[in-house]
Design a protein around this nucleic acid. Structure first.
Length: 474
DNA sequence: TTTTGAGTTGTTCGA
DNA sequence: GTCGAACAACTCAAA
């Protein structure tokens, strides 16, 4: 065919891109298109930092395209109307897209496919959610058997099988489009330069060579004071890196490992990638989880939903240093360590007894990597309302977690600078400092740093009681 | 159809 | 300080 549209949504990359590969092989000229959908940009779950990351990523993609004789066409409006108009203008005969498995995207694409020649390809996941099923054909709801099936399912995993970036992309000149928005701009505190080149660099740094951090991942990933994680989530979120590229790199590293610990590290990281696909699959098969509890038993849960407690949590002023450090890291950088996500989520849901959806929304408004599937899965896991969820009685103790995974309080001091002078012995629980020691180090709890907003002994009991009542109400 | 083994990430309490 | 049990049964997945 003469011309076709490559509609870009969450696949901002040229390498290992099935949709791009397909369009380049079938059409003489390609129209790379991004549509700013007001429904997505203005929603309650939109985050400014994530949006800024997306705009920066699109600028980087446009630069890559221009090196190959092409450019990015940006439109704004309802996708169906915009695609129909663009098709008229360019005589494009087909539209190729990477399938997005979220409920909104599914409805949108179905409606468009009814009117226009839309071809969907894989790429968001290694294995599409419709292919990992139980022997009876139903979707999995428990992670371990899902992961077993996922791992057993063959896929070409040698690096040579990854699709190359096209050397050249021919695009008709002078297709009308709008410039990308300037705002919001990416804050300098956000440690994620956008773009495919940066994603590839990070993947290499994390997985290549005998001393690669992936080999220590199993041991270091839980430490909030260390850089033990890959820091790749925003890139996977927007497809600046493909899931397959990540999995291939993990398996390569596994084969190259010189000792069991190294293999364990590589395998643990691969497991996290499978978790990502598990929650994408859960959302695909059970879209109602975006609205409420996967496990309906807990619909009867009597939340406390105290607005002041919620504000203190959001603003990092709960009086629990590890919680406050994590919440401030999120607000400043758009990212939070995975262990910290669990700790603050447990605190919100199981200490403050605030509806997990409030926390889910706050995360979506701040996370650069915010993805409905993983975010919802994580929150429901913590709340004990999800598939394969944490038992209701598993309530994180923030102080214990802090001592274990930020032993010297370096993470706390980095994000809660008013506690810098507190001695190591009290950094995890400054409220327990005797008054004369508070004077001596110049940190008076209640004046320089908030006193704890709640008594955990009481809130813990309250939560166990509330969950018990919800179970008995059924 | 029935049976069997298993299920991400914790905490507290009392011996 | 260390250790095991209790937390509570229940549901899932596969043989």
């Amino acid at each position: 065919m003469k011309a076709a549209i490559w509609w870009i949504r969450r696949d901002l990359r040229l390498a290992d891109n099935e949709a791009l590969t397909a369009v380049c092989s079938r059409a003489d000229t390609v129209i790379p298109t991004f549509i700013i959908d007001p429904q997505l940009v203005n929603g309650r779950y939109t985050g400014e930092k994530r949006l800024a990351f997306l705009w920066a990523g699109l600028r980087a993609l446009d630069a890559q395209l221009r090196e190959r004789g092409s450019y990015l066409v940006v439109r704004e409006g309802a996708p169906l109307a915009e695609l129909a108009a663009l098709r008229q203008e360019t005589q494009a005969e087909a539209i190729f897209v990477e399938e997005d498995y979220s409920p909104y995207a599914g409805r949108r694409d179905k409606a468009i496919a009814a009117e226009l020649p839309l071809t969907l390809t894989g790429g968001v996941t290694v294995h599409p959610p419709s292919t990992i099923l139980k022997t009876n054909g139903e979707p999995y709801t428990v992670f371990t058997p899902f992961s077993k099936q996922w791992r057993e399912r063959p896929f070409p995993d040698d690096p040579g099988s990854l699709l190359p970036a096209p050397a050249q992309i021919r695009t008709p000149a002078h297709i009308a489009g709008r410039p990308l928005p300037e705002k919001p701009a990416l804050p300098t505190a956000v440690p994620f330069p956008a773009g495919e080149a940066e994603a590839q660099r990070r993947l290499r740094t994390f997985t290549a060579g005998p001393e690669a951090p992936i080999y220590a991942y199993g041991a270091r990933r839980n430490r909030m004071d260390l850089d033990g994680t890959a820091q790749l989530s925003p890139y996977l979120r927007f497809g600046m890196l493909s899931a397959r590229q990540a999995v291939v790199a993990a398996r390569e590293a596994w084969h190259q490992a010189s000792h069991d610990n190294g293999r364990h590290g590589a395998d643990t990281w691969l497991n996290e990638l499978i978790w990502r696909e598990f929650y994408i699959s859960i959302l695909y098969h059970f879209p109602y989880v975006l609205k409420g509890n996967f496990n309906r038993t807990y619909d009867a849960l009597a939340w406390d939903n105290d607005a002041e407690h919620f504000a203190a949590w959001q603003n990092g002023r709960t009086g629990y240093p590890i919680i406050d450090a994590a919440m401030r890291q999120l607000a400043a950088t758009g990212w939070m360590h995975n262990r910290a996500r669990m700790i603050v989520a447990s605190f919100l849901v199981k200490d403050l007894l605030i509806d997990w959806r409030w926390g889910e929304r706050h995360f979506m408004q701040h996370l650069v990597d915010g993805d409905p599937a993983a975010n919802n899965g994580g929150w429901q896991w913590t709340a004990g309302t999800g598939t394969d969820a944490a038992p209701y009685f598993r309530i994180f103790n923030p102080t214990t977690q802090s001592k274990k995974f930020d032993p010297d309080g370096r993470y706390i001091r980095r994000w809660v600078p008013e506690l810098t002078a507190v001695p190591d012995a009290h950094i995890h629980e400054p409220a327990a400092m005797p008054p004369d020691l508070q004077k001596q180090c110049g940190v008076i709890v209640g004046r320089d740093y908030p006193a704890p907003t709640i008594d955990r002994q009481k809130t813990r009991q309250r939560t166990l009681e509330a969950y018990k009542q919800a179970r008995e109400a059924v």
